[in-house]
Amino acid sequence: MTTFLQQVFNGLTLGSIYGLVALGLTLVYGILHIPNFAHGALYMVGAFMSYFFMVDMGVHYWIAMAGSAVVVAVLGIICERLVFHQLRNSPPIHDKIAAIGILLFLEAMVHMFWGSEFRRMSSPFGGVMNLDGVYLREQGILIIASTVVLVVALNLFLRKTMVGATIIAMAQNREGAFLVGIDANRVAMMTFAISGGLAAIAATLYAPLNLVYPAMGHLVIMKAFVIIILGGMGSIPGAIVGGMIIGFAEAFGGYYISTAYKDVIAFSLLVVILSIRPQGLFAKGAH
């Protein structure tokens, strides 16, 4: 029972991180219909920015996280303006290739500045709580709590504010949104900013449990893609639910099946599900 509960906790931690990354990806997809392959690179840059702020500038964890979120949000806006905006009338294959170009560039830049070695990032929440044999890492609790706060905040922002409503409107119906005078450029920039910020926060939350290195985004972005396909591309609740599915599948699969193959589990799950349901688990109609 304790090992089971332990895996539940691990699954929740992983699922929260995946959910946050997938959330940014699904927002961009829902509004701009771009599968942003560079999202994993934004996540990676987020971790390195936090590392830079914490280790080189010596600021506190929270401030580093905020600074990193701002930097990556701006980076997202730059990508949108310089690249995706220019390609808005191109065939969809061009968006994907351009996103790959951004990914390669960002990785090479980070590689040049920081090298390829693995770095460890500390956090003020290094302790472990023992609850009847179940070990709860403080960082894990922080991750779960932060995810809940962020998701609730994002939801309130999207539902209760005018600015958020324009994003929802764009996702629901592009032409309709233009018709009522919504500025598409502003919505696109804002979406990229939120998406980048979420990626940076997720990276900063997860980095203390993991390591920081230029290729750290590869697996995460691919899992995030698996998640948004499972949850329906563009769906916000789908991203969270999908994130939890993958998180739990990995925690339990890693423990009960094989640790070496735990990364294969997510992808195999996708292959199996898409073989049976090509439109994804929760997709409603055509997207």
Binding site: V83, S90, H94, I97, A98, G101, L104, M112
Partner: peptide
């Protein structure tokens, strides 16, 4: 290994 600093943007410029 830094050649992608040139090739990444090259890819973007090409598709645009």
């Amino acid at each position: 290994e830094y050649r992608m600093i040139i090739f990444g943007p090259l890819l973007v410029l090409l598709v645009i």
